[in-house]
Nucleic acid binder design. Structure first.
Lengths: 338, 338
DNA sequence: CCCTGGCACTCGGCGCATACGAGTGCCAGC
DNA sequence: GCTGGCACTCGTATGCGCCGAGTGCCAGGG
């Protein structure tokens, strides 16, 4: 177990390193923080911290920088979440209040997060898995052509074109629309398959083929859309910490384009609260020198999706966590209102 | 007017520079291209080309690199469009054929363009301005709450929530839906305002407020959605030509996030064919060291949106133009089919 | 037992001088 | 108008030496 002072030393190292982006030495530490002890003592503490793997030297006889393990301890034990100031909270609310639809909410959220944290922001579209069906609409575009429109309670809309095996009358369509909605409206997506199973039986023989086609398209849409989408913003911020590496920024950009990877990382944790994944804790190799701060958000108490930021491991964790938490909270409010 | 050989020298310089990314000298030129003259002669030609502003020296006594003006001449007069090979064409078609909806078409197009050109790809969603209304759907979610869903002939769907000034019955809604569609279905967006102008008059006094609200929301949606959206991909490719500059990549990333800027640049040219904007020809400062190759695409003969790539001015113009043109053609086919 | 000041040592970064070589412009000759 | 030759330029690479921040270790003192 580390002594209290050594923890303070670690905290000071993290803070200084995050601020200056340069390895921090014992002398500088004692000057900038009132630890009440001499550099020599700090050196001993640093040696101990290094033995334990919390900090490391990039080169012999240089200052120390925190390791992933050091950041982990910092986040878990040494740092709180820095709350947003009142003006910041107002700005967040104002900015989000102007949104006109779901796309706009997500787009604004991404911009906002990117600006607040000056890092890359990632916002997952509200998930369909935990959502409910608000309405299913069927439109006849041609005698044997139907458009299926699925509307969720989060305001998301998905549509599919369906080529029917046989012409399908306007009255049959209205009938199907009514029966379908009476069964699935307000229900969870996961429940839909059972709910519509026996629906074709209520129709004339000639229409059953079309009804089945429509239903299977609906189920397909539900499944496909479980591959949720992401919106990403603030990639220009990557250049801020790229003086050392076009080498490091490339895999990050690649990871950001591979939305599957990001979705997996975001989804991995079931923790309802905030998650911080530091450096090598991210399973994906290209993100080994970044940290991801994410949190669930949703309209009710229930989280329906995640949002977060991707930044260098040397990030301002308290500030970032504060911003992420605040934004998630306000987005939840906005979604609940609409 | 430049002599034939001098044009050949310019062409050789552009080709070599694009290949090697290094300033090209007179000796290397004669070795790699059979110009039939000695380096000294080439030097004279190069001096002439430099006087005319087609090439420049980064430093005294280094090789020459093409200027924007040089690239311009190259693109206009010296280079053709390199057609895709048959296997490439097949690959494009296969890749695009798998798309399930409009979002997917656009997403696949972006990926494809980025991979083919190894640059940043930009695809504008099919524009609503030149599109027609396929269907307007109205859904009653609560007594005084209506959802408006607008479906375009390109398969795009937009939805808006409407709070009605007064409760609105299911029958009135059905009535409005029918009347609205009979007027606007199949019509161009730009024509919609006149077409619905007198619609409220056919309704009971108590319903007119709601009808007006719905109509104005519809018109609003049309206008708002004229701010078209973009999808961008392949940003990781920026790092390929960034060994010299994290300084150059940043403004490009910023420009890519400012979709307004890109939309403006894409929209600026009315040329139905391919447009190449080289370096400073781009009005936006951050893109002064990039070139944009863009072309319109659409389902009929008519272009409804643009797509293209953003890359360094030192790009392979013939190849890029070939890829852009081919992709645009196939996307048009896909859209026409659906 | 822990803290402290002192001291020798390490090593990366910076400035400087030098050498190298690619490339140029010019000129005289064919 | 093309060519070969030649002197010149200048950016880059290389090697060297210095400097200083920072360390580890140790002996002494509370």
């Amino acid at each position: 177990m580390l002594s209290e002072r050594r923890l303070q030393v670690l905290r000071a190292i993290v803070q200084d390193y995050v601020g200056t982006e340069e390895p921090v030495g014992s002398k500088a530490l004692t000057e900038r923080h009132s630890l009440g002890v001499s550099p020599a003592t700090v050196r001993n503490d640093m040696a101990a911290l290094e033995d334990e793997g919390y900090i490391a030297q990039p080169h012999t006889s240089a200052g120390r920088i925190p390791t992933d393990k050091g950041y982990r301890l910092f986040v878990d034990k040494l740092a709180g979440v820095k709350p947003m100031t009142a003006p910041e909270r107002r700005a967040i609310q104002n900015f989000l209040d102007g949104a006109v639809d779901l796309d706009d909410v997500v787009a604004r959220t991404v911009r906002l997060l990117a600006q607040l944290t000056r890092q890359v922001a990632v916002v997952q579209y509200p998930s369909l898995t935990r959502s409910t069906v608000r309405h299913v609409e069927l439109l006849s575009l041609a005698p044997a052509r139907v458009m299926l429109v699925l509307i969720t309670d989060t305001g998301r809309v998905e549509q599919r074109m369906i080529d029917c095996p046989a012409p399908f009358g306007e009255t049959s369509l209205a009938d199907l629309r009514a029966r379908l909605n009476s069964r699935v409206a307000g229900r969870r997506f996961t429940d839909v398959p059972q709910l519509v199973e026996d629906l074709p039986e209520g129709f004339d023989l000639e229409d059953r083929g079309t009804v089945s086609t429509v239903l299977s398209t609906l189920l397909e849409t539900l499944v496909e859309e479980n591959e949720e989408r992401l919106m990403i913003g603030g990639t220009a911020n990557l250049t801020r910490f790229a003086h050392d590496f076009p080498l490091t920024i490339r895999p990050v950009l690649e990871a950001l384009e591979e939305q599957v990877v990001l979705l997996k990382l975001l989804g991995e944790t079931q923790d309802p609260g905030m998650t911080v994944r530091i450096g090598h804790e991210n399973a994906y190799e290209g993100l080994n020198s970044t940290s991801i701060v994410s949190v669930g958000y949703g309209s009710g108490g229930e989280a329906v999706a995640k949002l977060g930021v991707v930044g260098p491991t040397r990030m301002d964790y308290p500030g970032t966590m504060g911003a992420v938490r605040a934004v998630a909270r306000y987005v939840g409010q906005i979604l609940a209102e609409s």
